[in-house]
Write a protein that binds this DNA or RNA. Sequence first.
DNA 1: GTCTATATCTGGATAGAC
DNA 2: GTCTATCCAGATATAGAC
Lengths: 214, 214
Amino acid sequence: MTSIRERNQELILRAASEEFADKGFAATKTSDIAAKAGLPKPNVYYYFKSKENLYREVLESIIEPLLAASAPFNQPGRPAEVLKAYIRSKIRISRELPFASKVFASEIMHGAPHLSPEQTEQLNAQAKHNISCIQRWIDQGLMAKVDPHHLMFSIWAATQTYADFDWQISTVTGKGSLDDEDYEAAVRTITRLVIKGCDIDETVPSASEQVSNA
Amino acid sequence: MTSIRERNQELILRAASEEFADKGFAATKTSDIAAKAGLPKPNVYYYFKSKENLYREVLESIIEPLLAASAPFNQPGRPAEVLKAYIRSKIRISRELPFASKVFASEIMHGAPHLSPEQTEQLNAQAKHNISCIQRWIDQGLMAKVDPHHLMFSIWAATQTYADFDWQISTVTGKGSLDDEDYEAAVRTITRLVIKGCDIDETVPSASEQVSNA
DNA sequence: GTCTATATCTGGATAGAC
DNA sequence: GTCTATCCAGATATAGAC
């Protein structure tokens, strides 16, 4: 059973995500959040103590999905399959969590003043892990000598842009919102740039080769 | 000769760029802008009427450089040279106009509420021109069939990220700021992804071929 | 737990002296 | 043209009735 408490907190969180994504932290009014949630303003303060607290909860909600997107890097795998899965996950986050994604982007853009040192460290550690993973592939001759840092920056940017700069994308494409095929095209394009751009072998290892690895 | 007026306007504009880039429009206090410019607050209002007006001037200052970056698309040229020049220009803007770049990014992220219809139209027209230019190259068999819209989104994102998400880049690389070689590596990486990713021929046409084109 | 009414404070903007 | 002192709108946050 869902209590009124849980329901209202969820309504407020959802409304807050959208407002913060749309206007930014400072420009967002708690009264607008309350109105969008269909609740009186003091309820916002009752459930979440302060505007900043509420903001931090929205921000926190995106950390776990972001870390989860790096899962392909956390198990053994060949460059093609890991990078493809990673790009797909990142695009999925942009599509399915567009508001929290934007809040996160805005937060990073302003120097991450609300991220806790622990969150910063978690994200940074994962990023460094991914980068060293790419460096290893380069050392093993599995891909071209591309600067792994800059490669990661390009992948992040290219995938995040579908959430962060949706207005620009709508304006240029002339579409109000992108459909399944548009997101598939995005994944295809970014994947192609990365795979071909890094000279990565796309052929699947044969059964015998797979067995011989064991 | 530079009048006091010009000097003060310049000081205020520079301070405003930094503050708006750092905190965003709503979170920026005019008193902080004045303080950073080394002038009393009413001077800000004397020279620029309102906070919003000042913000619009900062925003406007980046439009022309952004349009100018598309110059390679506005004259005949082969894919490799045009795209290379474009990527280099975009990275240069991120490096040389980091504050205005960030202000622009933030503006776009929130749906461009302060951009005039004319500015929107100018930017959009240029974007569409660039995209149709890429489509023509594809039709002519000069590059692979990559969706031109998504290719442009990736190039914008990958180049803008050096201004917008400088905090992330500093955190991950462990460097306070990037040097010449870092920016060269960025250009090299993005260029490689685009050129190789789109199967673009990099060989320079021979003198005879160049003549035969005339 | 919920909401009306209100306190309090921040920050954009300006009047008016110099 | 410049700046001190001040006004006041608007937003966060809460007291206290229900």
